[in-house]
Design a binder for these strands. Sequence first.
DNA 1: GACGATAATATCGTGTACGATATATTATAA
DNA 2: TTATAATATATCGTACACGATATTATCGTC
Lengths: 154, 154
Amino acid sequence: MPKPLSRDKLPKSAEELICFNIYSAGHAFNRAYSPMLKKLKLTYPQYITLTILWETDGLKVGDLCEKLRLESSTLTPLLKRLEALGYIKRQRGKEDERQVFVHLTKVGSSLQKHAGDITRCIIEATGYDLDTLDTLVKTIAELRDNVILTNSDA
Amino acid sequence: MPKPLSRDKLPKSAEELICFNIYSAGHAFNRAYSPMLKKLKLTYPQYITLTILWETDGLKVGDLCEKLRLESSTLTPLLKRLEALGYIKRQRGKEDERQVFVHLTKVGSSLQKHAGDITRCIIEATGYDLDTLDTLVKTIAELRDNVILTNSDA
DNA sequence: GACGATAATATCGTGTACGATATATTATAA
DNA sequence: TTATAATATATCGTACACGATATTATCGTC
């Protein structure tokens, strides 16, 4: 009987399932970020949203949804809270009034200066070096996009 | 100037951050599971909870919290909903009345027969083979536990 | 230029998820 | 033995996150 080219036993326990490990790792990151973000009055999803805007300001709500892989039903209230904090400004498009553009305020922009320290702190917590993390990121991103794609067709 | 042993440039954009990729991958899995779980009247976190109980029935709430890396404030309402569905039974310990034991009902146990198909479907969606996923799981689990540990001390 | 189709956000109801806190029970110490 | 501390769950308030649906605006077609 030849050795199989791949394991043929399906994972069964939660600990063996990729989904559970991603799920619990997600919460772990949330809990690791939260105390640092509290000083900036930000939640973890709000912070991630700002990192997108720091790179490309003035995106439409739909653009942010696409980049964040979130629904407008999730993002709209989050953006309202960021606006209430004075970190962003939302304004309807003049040309097409269905669109809403999201711009950083001066205060919102200035928060970026804390990002480096926060990132360093989290990276250190993972216990992995930048090269390993970089590879891991690419793998998880591809896995995520495969799952999204499989889910959208059919 | 010698080539550095590791990348020395910190990830800056969300797409490069390990946390964002785990975050968005988590949502992707949730969305991939949900349609299948809807037939069983289950949500994704409820399903993960059941996979733990299918392996070890009769755990205490605290044991489940530890295995799931969730707080009791999250798990208690979830378990109540599972009980309302008739999938589990919660009962106070006789010896120590602070403890609550969680047992599968006959119906709750019987749901396990669907797990194989669901797992196969998700694994296929990832686009990776079992060996690769197995390695990835170990990496993410270690990363998660590092982050949790770093967060708990200090 | 009226009108159905499409598109971009927003609203709503349900279910996580957390930290802070409350409640109830058991363990410890005075 | 009786305060007091520690432990195990539960409750509460806030913030995601989703699907389903509503709202408003633009586009095609006649």
